[in-house]
Computed example of a mutant assay.
Amino acid sequence: MPHFVIDCSERILLTHCEEKINQEIHKVAHLTGLFDEKDIKVRVNPFKHYSVANRKEDFIHVFANVMEGRTTTQKAELSKAVVAKLNDLFPSVENIAMNVRGFEKATYCNKSML
């Protein structure tokens, strides 16, 4: 944990490849001090077909799923840091956003917990 899932228009990958995006978001998440580096997971989902306000405008939206225990302020600062980094990488993309969802430790399970 955490997972950073980046939905984006396929065309933004002409500016930076998926590997670069993954590395940069991983770095930002680690620098917040909220997560162990080895636990951070980042992936990019590029879309060929999409609509933004009924137009084909480039977009980036990050869905972060983090374990409970972070404050609203910490989650807000995480969002701002990630959006700021993406804005630096993609200054011409107008639609950049992020939301952070917390989930309960009691309902989380992974293979090593079986």
Rank of each mutant, 00 (worst) to 15 (best):
1 M>C: 11
1 M>G: 11
2 P>C: 06
3 H>F: 06
5 V>S: 13
6 I>Y: 06
6 I>Q: 04
10 E>H: 13
11 R>V: 09
13 L>F: 10
13 L>R: 12
17 C>G: 15
17 C>P: 08
18 E>H: 04
18 E>W: 00
19 E>N: 14
19 E>K: 15
21 I>C: 02
25 I>Q: 01
27 K>S: 14
30 H>D: 14
30 H>A: 12
32 T>V: 06
34 L>H: 02
34 L>Y: 11
35 F>N: 10
35 F>R: 08
36 D>C: 08
36 D>W: 01
38 K>R: 10
39 D>F: 14
40 I>W: 05
44 V>H: 04
46 P>M: 12
47 F>W: 10
49 H>K: 09
50 Y>R: 01
51 S>A: 14
52 V>I: 15
53 A>I: 04
55 R>Y: 11
56 K>W: 00
57 E>R: 09
59 F>R: 09
60 I>R: 05
61 H>N: 04
61 H>Y: 10
61 H>P: 01
62 V>Q: 04
63 F>N: 13
63 F>S: 13
63 F>P: 00
67 M>T: 12
68 E>D: 15
70 R>Y: 07
71 T>N: 08
72 T>E: 14
72 T>C: 11
73 T>N: 11
73 T>V: 11
75 K>G: 01
77 E>G: 00
77 E>T: 10
77 E>C: 03
79 S>R: 07
79 S>A: 12
79 S>F: 06
82 V>N: 07
83 V>A: 04
84 A>C: 03
86 L>S: 05
86 L>Y: 02
86 L>T: 04
87 N>M: 03
87 N>V: 05
88 D>M: 13
90 F>A: 09
91 P>Q: 10
91 P>K: 09
97 A>T: 14
97 A>V: 02
98 M>F: 07
100 V>M: 02
102 G>L: 06
102 G>P: 06
103 F>L: 01
103 F>A: 03
105 K>M: 09
105 K>D: 09
106 A>L: 11
107 T>D: 14
108 Y>L: 06
108 Y>P: 02
109 C>N: 13
109 C>V: 13
111 K>I: 11
112 S>E: 12
113 M>P: 00
